[in-house]
Write a protein that binds this DNA or RNA. Structure first.
Lengths: 182, 182
DNA sequence: TCTACTTATTCAACGGATTGCGCAGCAATA
DNA sequence: TATTGCTGCGCAATCCGTTGAATAAGTAGA
């Protein structure tokens, strides 16, 4: 659980609606970790109940009304408290690892096929991230730095996965008698 | 959701109780991804209802009775079906990324301190994994291979995180005027 | 003109995961 | 003797996350 804190972080800078947050999410942390708008609205509701945020109701014409949320002092306190509290590193929860263990017992070639599919996806993601990171690095602004670092995290993660895939491929070919190419 | 499939994979080899599975989990996939016994018992219950597994009730003296679960044909079918179905790569859900974005706005030094704490943890985990992997590689048995690959995944993951931490450290030092050492 | 997208919020349902608790008895150790 | 730790199972509550859908009105494009 840290979506609530992610929201509080984003609200530190400016007032925003749930919709705004959903978009901002998609452009920063969400590049790597996405949250749906439902989640965000839900969390905003809870934060409001707990007086971590408050909102102004803004009637609009042409567009639907919106609620502009702002962080409160209680919210800022909670955020700081959370920042101080050390967090446990997240677990890897990759179903593909299960497939490797399972596939070897039934269909090794199917696992290899999926390995290649996943690798393609990862390579694609990698080049997307690299392009975005390059663009951000050139602008070199203070505000973009966190987005840049987030992207770097994503990049290193893809690279690590791809290296792992190389090892898995080699191991499987070594053990089974499988063709060298797909 | 792939705990159910992880369980089915483990049950392919042998009959096991929930307790056994919890332990096996801790020694293979669970090195990297842990599941609690509650989750496992719950999942076994559901799998049983759906006839994916069946069990024999084993009375014991000295110890509490146990249920030895075995995979059924329906379970094996389900497993194969799942193995064939391509899965989406998991998202990175690391609250530390949120902290970086948040900490810079309030207390950069606290974030750096936690970065080092996390790095220590990761380094520890890394050397544990490396020791285990080395031992497994020497035994070089067919059955250990999947555990070995799982460990390699964990190792590469820790290394990637540590590289990222180096970048974060460098970036933060570049921007803020902070001392070079902790 | 009809379709599709954007802005904006919310409800409902389900399933997965975590936390906390309880029961039960044996073995080892402090 | 008292405490801890291991084997073994389970319930209940809560939370987190995903999917799907509904409502509502403007605007851009085929």
């Amino acid at each position: 659980m840290s979506l609530r804190h992610a929201i509080l972080v984003l609200l530190q800078d400016q007032e925003a609606s749930g919709y705004d947050l959903a978009r901002e999410f998609a452009n920063s942390i969400g590049l790597v970790w996405n949250a749906t708008h439902q989640q965000i609205y839900l969390e905003l509701g809870k934060l409001n109940e707990q007086d971590m945020v408050k909102y102004r109701h803004i009637p609009q014409d042409g567009k639907p009304d919106k609620k502009l949320y702002r962080i409160t002092d209680a919210g800022r306190d909670e955020l700081i408290r959370w920042l101080r509290k050390p967090a446990a590193p997240p677990r890897i929860r990759d179903s593909f690892m299960v497939k490797i263990a399972g596939g070897a017992l039934s269909e090794p070639s199917a696992v290899l096929r999926e390995l290649e599919d996943q690798a393609d996806l990862r390579r694609e993601r990698l080049s997307t991230f690299e392009a975005l990171a390059k663009a951000l690095a050139e602008r070199n602004s203070e505000k973009d730095m966190y987005t840049y670092l987030t992207l770097r995290r994503g990049i290193l993660d893809q690279q690590a996965w791809l290296s792992w895939a190389d090892e898995v491929r080699a191991e499987l070919h070594k053990r089974e008698d499988l063709p060298t190419s797909a």
